[in-house]
Amino acid sequence: MSGQPDTVGEQRPLFEWDWVGRNMDRIGERVVEHLELTGVAVASGVLIALALAMVSLRWRRLHAVILGIGGVLYAIPALAAFAFLVPIFGLSFPTAVIPLISYTILILVRNIVTGIDQVPGDVREAARGMGFTRARVFRKVELPLAVPVIVAGTRISAVTTIGLVTVTSILGVGGLGAFILQGFRTLPIYPTPIVVGVVASVLLAILVDLALLLTERALTPWARRGSA
């Protein structure tokens, strides 16, 4: 860690394939850790956001308040959030995951509410007219029809979270960021783990995005027929 150009010893090559071969097991572990953090954060985020969205839909005035708080949480830098939580939880999983959850709230609540708001009034009216209870309308009509918008929000949250999880490595909770840290804490700088960490994180984001997209298509068979 120096402001001066790295001149210590020889430079290592930018990428060494045999490092990857030697470290396949560790890469696998790191990916699992990365996915665990992402999964816990996004799943908790979706559950919390769903609850907050229902509150927003029931009491419209609270919607702006909830979005306002979500906006503030979203604007707080990850490093600052860690700074606030480390004194309480130490360098631990909760310290890493709580900020990650908080970043998903804004996007998810907004998308769930928008998704349900855009359900055509006549569809809702028809369901009510057939004797659906309010709760049943929500579960059977509004929520399914809002799936594309909700999944869109989840995709954004998941991809953003995967990127942020690389930073949580400074808390020593693992994930692909650990490779990045390892790479530049070694002297001379070891670029291979850095490249592996970054590239794997990007690939993971793309794959998770794709998986969620396929989930959406499976959940909304009606959206594909007819319009295509």
Partner: peptide
């Protein structure tokens, strides 16, 4: 979104160094 900002910083730093 897919490119982690931490990775971005590292790459530019690596290139500069």
């Amino acid at each position: 979104r897919a490119i982690p900002s931490f990775g971005l910083i590292i790459i530019f730093w690596l290139a500069a160094s």
